[in-house]
Every structure is written in C-alpha cells, then in structure tokens.
Design a protein around this nucleic acid. Sequence first.
DNA 1: ATTTGAAGCTAAATCGATTTAGCATATCTT
DNA 2: AAGATATGCTAAATCGATTTAGCTTCAAAT
Lengths: 343, 343
Amino acid sequence: MTKERKILLNDVAKAVGVSKTLVSIVINGKAKQYRISEKMEKRVFEVVNEMNYSPNLVAQNLRGGKSQLIGVIVTDISNPFYSMISRIIEDKANELSYTVLFSSSDENLVNTKKLIKVLINKGVDGLIIVPCDGSEEIIKNLQEDNIPLVLLDRYFPNLEISFSCLDNKKATALATQHLIDRGYKKIAVVSYLTDMNHMSDRVAGYENTMIKSGKEKNINIKRINISNQRMEMYGALDYLLKEGTDAIICLTNMLSINGIYCLNEMKVKIPEDIAFVGFNRSDVFNLLHSPITYIKQPIEQIANEAINILIEKINHPGNLKKSISIGDPELVIQHSTPQKSLW
Amino acid sequence: MTKERKILLNDVAKAVGVSKTLVSIVINGKAKQYRISEKMEKRVFEVVNEMNYSPNLVAQNLRGGKSQLIGVIVTDISNPFYSMISRIIEDKANELSYTVLFSSSDENLVNTKKLIKVLINKGVDGLIIVPCDGSEEIIKNLQEDNIPLVLLDRYFPNLEISFSCLDNKKATALATQHLIDRGYKKIAVVSYLTDMNHMSDRVAGYENTMIKSGKEKNINIKRINISNQRMEMYGALDYLLKEGTDAIICLTNMLSINGIYCLNEMKVKIPEDIAFVGFNRSDVFNLLHSPITYIKQPIEQIANEAINILIEKINHPGNLKKSISIGDPELVIQHSTPQKSLW
DNA sequence: ATTTGAAGCTAAATCGATTTAGCATATCTT
DNA sequence: AAGATATGCTAAATCGATTTAGCTTCAAAT
C-alpha cells in the first residue's frame, strides 16, 4: 500500500466540480448564510464523507488565528494531584475539540516564564496556569496582553484575574475544628515556605479556628522547603513532638506522604502517639493500618471550572470580567483522628 | 499599556531595510550558504534581538510541514506510572525544542483511533503510543503511512515497528526466582485479561521460572478485567487463598495496590499470611507496616529511549530500520517476602 | 572590450485553508 | 420594459513564514 497523499480542500472541490470557496463554506456550516442550494450542500457533504476529508488544522490556524490549543502549566505533572487535574482537563478539552499542551514549572519562576513564552509562541488560544512564587508580575503582564488566562489551585488576591481553586481557609478550618471536637489540644500544621496564597489561606484557616476556640497560644506552624522535603520533615516533626503536639495537619499531599513516612521511620504511631490529617486523596491514606483522615478537594469541579472559564474567555475576548470558582472541601474522616481519651 | 501587535518577519525586514528573504535566511543560519555578508548578518541579528522577534510557528509549520510537535498516547495520564513517564518525555522533548501533546486512550481501541487521527491532524511530526488490545491493525497502517512512530511499554512482535519497553520476562523471572529462593512453593500471579505482549511476557517469565524449578503443577494465573478491578480482585484472591497460595505477584502497579487493599480488607496479613510482590514503585509500598518487595522499571531510560528513537526517525524519514530498546528490571527486596520458615 | 563568474540581495511562489468582493442569471416591481 | 432584488456561485486576497529562481553590480579572465 503506497502512501496516499492527504486529501485537500481542492481535491474535494474538483471532485464535486465547484470552487474551493463553496466547499469551505458548506463545511463550516455557512451554506444558508451564503445561499448555497440545499442540493449542492448535500452533494458536498456526500463527497466530503466519501473522500474522508478533514481540514488541515495548521492552515486553518494560520488563516483564522485560532489554534484550538490551550496551554496548561502545572508545577509537576507527575505529582498525583496535578496528574489527576490534567486528566480531567484533557478529557474536557477533547470534548470541546481543544488540544492541551501540558508543561511543568517545578515551582520555578524562570521555567514558568520560559514555558509561557513557548506556549504563546505555539499559538495557544489561552492558558491555565498554576502560578509559582514570584510570578505575580508576569501573570499581570499576560493579562495586560489580553491573553485568555485562568489561574488554577492558587491566585493573586490583588490581581483582577480569573481563577479556580479550593476554599483553602475552609479546608483547614474543617480539619482543625474536627480535631478540636475530638479533644486534641496541641494541634500543629506543617506547611511549605512559600508566599503563595493557597498556603497562607490554609494556614489562616487553621489559625482562625484555633483562635476561635481559645487555643491561640497552641498555634504551631512549621514551614519547610519544597525541595529537600524529606530531610526537613524530620526536623519539623522532631520539633513538634518535643513541643508535645498531639495532632498534625499536613497542608499538601506530598507533605502528608512524607510526614507519614518520617513518622513511620521515627517509630511514632498514628494515631496512638499522634493524630494525623492529610491533604488530597491518596492510595497511601487508605492502605495504612489505620487509614488517614484527609481533606478532599473537588478536583473534578476545580478542573472543569478552570477550563469552562477559559473557553468562555477565549470565545468572548472583549469580556474582561473576573470569573472565580471556589471548590468546597470535604473532610473524609478515617481512623487517624479518633476521639481522644480524656483521662 | 496597550496590546502590542506581534512582531513579524516583515517588521524586522523593514527595520533593517532589507527583504524578508534575507532576514529569514539569516535567522535560519543559512547566511553562508546564500552568501549574505557578515556585516549584514550581524546587523540582522542585532535587530532581531532588539525587536525580540520570534517566528510564528504556525506559519513555519504550514510552509515547512514540520510542527515540532510530538503526540503521546498513554492509557491514562493520571496513572502514576504513565504520569512519571510523561514527565520525563516532556522534559526531554523541551530540551530538544519539541512540544508534546498528551492524551489518554483508557485502553480503548475506538479512543485510540480517534486520538491518532486528531494528533495527526494537529500536524504532529511523530507519535509515541502505548498500544491497546486490538490496535495492531491501525498501528500497522500508521507505519505504512510513514508516520514516525515508537511504541512504548508494549509492542507487537510481528510488526517491524520500533519500541521501548521493559524486559518483562526477566522482570517476573527475577521475582519468581526470588520467591522460590526464599522457600515459597505455591506462587501465583494476578494479571489482566489482555492479549498485549507485556502481560503475556510477564506471565511467561513466571511460568518459565516455575517450570525450571519443577513447580509447573503449582502454576496459578488469575486474569481479571481491567475495568471493575476492585470487585474481581476479591474473587481472584479468594480463589488463590483457598488453593493454598503462599505468595502472590501482581503484574501491574494498579493490580498491586488493589491487591494490597483487598487483602487488607480481607484481614489477610502480608507477609504473615501471604508473601507479596508488587510492580513499579509506589509510595504505598514503602509506607506499609511491612514494606513491599517490588519490581522496579528503569522508567527514565525507557522514556528517554522512546523519544530518542522517535526524534531519530523524524530526522531521517528514509531510514525504516526498527530500533528497539529493552530496559533492565530491578527487584527491590523489602519485607513482604521474608525467608519462609521451613518447619 | 566583451564575456564569465562571483557576491549580495530580492520578487514572487508556495503551504492549505477562509473570507471578501463581485459576477452572472433569474425573478420581481412598477 | 427597465430597474431593483434575489439566487447561486467563484476569483483572488489573505494569514506569516520559507524557498526558488533570478536580478544587479563589480571584479577577473580572455
């Protein structure tokens, strides 16, 4: 079987015996508008199907200035949280006949800049970005260049930019309140060293709840570096245990898994020695001897809203209104946070 | 700040006071070949940098027929194994200034066909595909259409198509031999119901090793459906336990995690009641009370080789030679497969 | 003094679609 | 019957780059 040349618009036109113009018009559903006879319209569709013609998207893109591509920058697509988000975005995009270009910034500003440039250069119609520390300025520039843009998972309170993320304050408030209700006194959190709002909101949700319950003097927050997590986690846990902490909330999935790992290694038992709340679902949480209580994000909703907002922006370039979508957290209560005995 | 129009080739040409042709030639490093004076070459580069010009990739693509895009079809990008592979491919592709279009087939033939069509239509220069059951024919067609193509993780022994995957027979042979060495007699495997070679090779590696050790009558293979895994897993385990199985090897990561979960639920203890070998690294394996022995794939190597072979094919379209790369498995021995007491 | 050749550059064609402007012919008005 | 309107279709411009073929100059060769 020799390689067959791809069918072009011109081939179809010749086969029908009309101009390219007519075929293009019909294919794009503008037959009525251009007064093409119904007989002809039918004939064209027949031949198009027969020849199995489909337009060259590159040419369409060049002509129309639309690529049907959207760029997505997460911090690391091999991180389960983002790979699940990506999968949902992928499916939704396909459904809307968009194609997604994924890339990973590794929480690095230089990478983020470079990736944005590459994606724009590829002609993406819009961007979904998980912004990293220090990216406020470049995100603002994007906005000013009128590039359809939605932030994911985090945002900048001072910028008029659409975003889709979790109600982070509520998430940790739920967890903290739950621990308080179960009788824990010295509740601590482990967070990242970052200025991004998702982390500070999670911390705030915890602090507010502690204060409301008159436990402000027990507030204890350890912040560790996003790289070198394993090592710093030991230090953080060691410190917290010495302080007499009776419950720990880890503010991300990776922190949770690292936390569990380190406690394991340190022979500290959950929940006998310390109660534990994790963040985001993970197989790990359910397979442990005592399954872990965790904060669950409505991933599907967050991802879907991000892409909905983006497509809306792409289709209505004039409309600069800031759309925001805030997902509701759920606390999945398992065995790592039992009622504390009150002796 | 008003939106600035993107700088075009023509703008640069005007700024320098020469033709578009000249600028294009210089940018593409063909100044010598076209006898452009060095003075002029330098001048052009200066202005290009000054104006921060970068060519419109869509136009380049239309003209040149090259998109610098590669399409990757995995079964599910939210599956940790594939999300790690994807991340490595992404990084390597960026390095080579390619961009990757990821998509997920869900092990479904219809999806696979559709995705291939969409990707080709997007103008990808080549494809990396994890083929699913029944896809042999369409993969063969791709090959015949001269589309640069590399299979990943699985392949078709009868097709002359390049691939990069694990030495699957060796992988299970290692695991089986290890269990035999540790004194296990009734070793069973849990596999998927599929005709793909990666699974049959894994099964074969197990069978061969059992036979070599005179245990052919103890060979026991349960195959379960890839959908509805959780339910079928209970049935499979129930059967194997009743048969007196003393060690189980699960042939994929998801099977392993599901297997561990079900055993957990069934109150069957690893390794006290049964020894267990998993497939592919997972956080889960290391966080359990007794960490799981598992077969580790050289993911980095497998992913890198896939893209290397693909780029090679893209750059030398004439060369139809079949390149294959087979990764070496490693058995990470932990506590789920202790020496069996020999009373 | 004329031819030959090299050096340095450019106009125009090209990739494959969409869209604008407009050309015939037929039908309707008055 | 002449002008207006509707119908059905097409030629050519366009998107932004690359590449082919070729045009000037000026120096070297005969």
